[in-house]
């Protein structure tokens, strides 16, 4: 009986954490999609945030209040470094290039001893409480909502609709693309640091191709008319496999079916509502 209770608590705790982290990752996907970029580097950014934060905690002994903001540094640096060359690409080429970069990073985690290789890094103190995770998620939602209702939000939507017309009306498309990539890196980096410090273990396979696609599916299912859509999509895709726990093996198949159905029947996502684009 006690074991059963313990099990329930653990399931519950993990789920609560996953919902928050996946919500953040969905927002990290949202900021690039909302500006019309199919950039799939979110899992890679998350991995950089996770690995760098764990090194700060374990190797350097930094306090978590310092580790959390510092966890954005590596992902942002990576975004700035790859931003220049990759943003010349568009559509599916950009998607492939960014997934490729994620795989390169995965190979590095696997082969560098200081990063634990295939075993990953463990013994991470659980310093990220669910409360903190949800506070970060709420702050991210609020910022994206406020930015969305401003000239920046209009510029992003204009770029998504027609980048050429946006440029002709005065939107610095290159700078905006780099900007949203950096924002995406910040959000995913935070998600990486938070999840690493909520689960005590990280491994290279947490940040490869499969998570990249899963993060994309959060936004596709939820819709990118507002930042709430992707968070809803993440919640559904996080909760559904739990509801059907007995079929855990079929989890990926199930995700795939949900995505195909959503794309076919809900092209604007579960939450088709489009946020207004001006302040007050």
């Amino acid at each position: 009986m006690e074991a059963w209770l313990d099990d329930l608590f653990w399931t519950y705790q993990n789920l609560v954490v996953s919902l928050g982290i996946n919500g953040l990752l969905a927002l990290s996907m949202y900021v690039v999609l909302a500006a019309g970029q199919l950039s799939l580097g979110q899992a890679a950014f998350m991995g950089l945030g996770a690995y760098s934060s764990v090194l700060m905690t374990l190797a350097w002994g930094w306090p978590f209040w310092l580790v959390l903001p510092a966890s954005c540094v590596a992902p942002v640096a990576f975004a700035l470094a790859v931003g220049g060359p990759t943003l010349r690409l568009s559509g599916v080429y950009l998607a492939i290039a960014t997934i490729g970069m994620g795989e390169v990073l995965r190979a590095i985690y696997l082969n560098v001893d200081a990063l634990g290789g295939a075993l990953g890094l463990s013994g991470i103190p659980e310093q990220a409480s669910p409360l903190l995770i949800y506070a970060v998620l709420a702050a991210a939602l609020a910022v994206l909502w406020l930015v969305g209702r401003s000239g920046l939000g209009r510029a992003m939507e204009a770029m998504r609709e027609d980048a050429t017309a946006a440029e002709a009306t005065g939107v610095d498309v290159r700078r905006m693309r780099l900007g949203v990539l950096v924002a995406s890196a910040v959000l995913a980096g935070l998600a990486g640091a938070l999840s690493a410090h909520a689960t005590d273990f990280i491994g290279p396979n947490d940040y490869g191709f499969e998570p990249a696609v899963t993060i994309l599916s959060f936004a596709l299912l939820g819709g990118v008319g507002s930042p709430f859509g992707p968070v809803l999509g993440a919640s559904v895709l996080t909760l559904l496999p739990e509801v059907f726990r007995d079929f855990a093996n079929l989890r990926l198949v199930f995700n795939g079916i949900v995505i195909v159905l959503a794309v076919l029947f809900l092209p604007r996502g579960l939450l088709a509502w489009r946020m207004p684009r001006r302040a007050a």
């Binding site: 910022v143 209009r154 510029a155 204009a158 027609d162 946006a166 009306t169 001006r278």
Partner: peptide, 28 residues
């Protein structure tokens, strides 16, 4: 090449983009 999903007012507002100077901090 109008921005079809946006309202007319929002379309016209994009034409004012070069004149907006608020920083991210100011916006948030």
């Amino acid at each position: 090449r109008v921005f079809g999903a946006m309202t007319l007012l929002e379309n016209a507002l994009t034409g004012l983009h070069p004149r907006l100077t608020s920083s991210l901090v100011g916006i948030v």
